[in-house]
């Protein structure tokens, strides 16, 4: 079982890294791109025999308490 946690800055928080990437797209001629926000991507491996409920709880807790700072960031979890 695998999960992916994607952490991004909240929309209200300025992202200097994303803005810098976006500014530099002009020289590539990618004129249609209006916004770039940088985030983090975590691949999480789990034991095969873990009940789905427990897996969800553990990954949720990891995302909420470790991978994200709730003051500035938000997360979403993708299961596969």
């Amino acid at each position: 079982m695998k999960a992916t946690v994607i952490v991004t800055l909240k929309p209200t928080v300025l992202d200097p890294q994303g803005m810098t990437i976006h500014r530099n797209l002009e020289s590539l001629g990618l004129a249609s791109i209006t916004d770039v926000r940088q985030g983090k991507h975590f691949d999480i491996g789990l034991k095969d025999d873990v009940p789905a409920e427990s897996a969800r709880e553990q990954v949720e807790r990891l995302a909420r308490e470790v991978l994200t700072n709730p003051v500035i960031e938000q997360y979403r979890i993708v299961w596969e």
Partner: peptide, 17 residues
């Protein structure tokens, strides 16, 4: 201290990078 919740707020990347 901000990460630990002992102080409010957070410290972000400097605006000038």
């Amino acid at each position: 201290l901000t990460e630990s919740g002992l102080l409010p707020g957070a410290l972000l990347r400097n605006v000038g990078m």
